[in-house]
């Protein structure tokens, strides 16, 4: 009986969601995609130009790539502090959120907000409130991948 009621409730909420969707304007998919593509692409091309500059001045490919990432992160965090990044992201969308700049922004934004709650638990703690999950998932899964490769190596397959 209870189960039947639950199913009924689910049906009603589904029907209502469908009904409410009729009144909800859709995001501008096409426009957003074009913007994300152009801005994201331009950002990556600019990063490549920067990387080539570093390589030309005698750095190895790996060092140059690290420098570029560092510069992008610093720039994004500076823009966040100045209060410009959210305005840019409103228009560029994934074009600046998906590159490493979005990750950098997601660290500073909550930390900035919780400054009044102290520099240790406020700023220090909130630095990871949004970026934490990204680091946790990325690092954990990379260790897992490494372990799998290690096992394959020991078994003589890899």
């Amino acid at each position: 009986m209870d189960k039947k009621k639950q199913i009924e409730k689910k049906d009603i909420s589904k029907a209502y969601s469908k009904y409410a969707d009729r009144f909800t304007p859709k995001p501008k998919y096409f426009k957003n995609i074009i913007k994300a593509f152009v801005i994201g692409g331009a950002l990556c091309a600019a990063a490549m130009w920067l990387e080539n500059k570093f390589i030309a001045s005698g750095n190895s490919q790996e060092d140059a790539s690290a420098y570029v990432v560092i510069i992008l992160i610093m720039a994004a965090q500076l823009l966040t502090g100045l209060g410009v990044f959210d305005t840019i992201a409103k228009h560029a969308g994934a074009g600046v959120i998906v590159p490493i700049t979005g990750f950098a922004n997601s660290m500073v934004a909550p930390a900035l907000e919780y400054k009044k709650e102290g520099v240790v638990l406020g700023v220090g703690g909130k630095l990871f409130s949004l970026a934490g999950p990204v680091l946790v998932c990325g690092i954990t899964s990379s260790i897992l991948v490494g372990l799998i490769y290690l096992m394959l190596d020991k078994l003589g397959i890899g």
Partner: peptide, 15 residues
């Protein structure tokens, strides 16, 4: 770089 970078961003935008 432009095409691949842009394409990854488009995936994010669609998500």
């Amino acid at each position: 770089a432009f095409i691949v970078g842009g394409a990854i961003c488009v995936v994010g935008q669609i998500l």
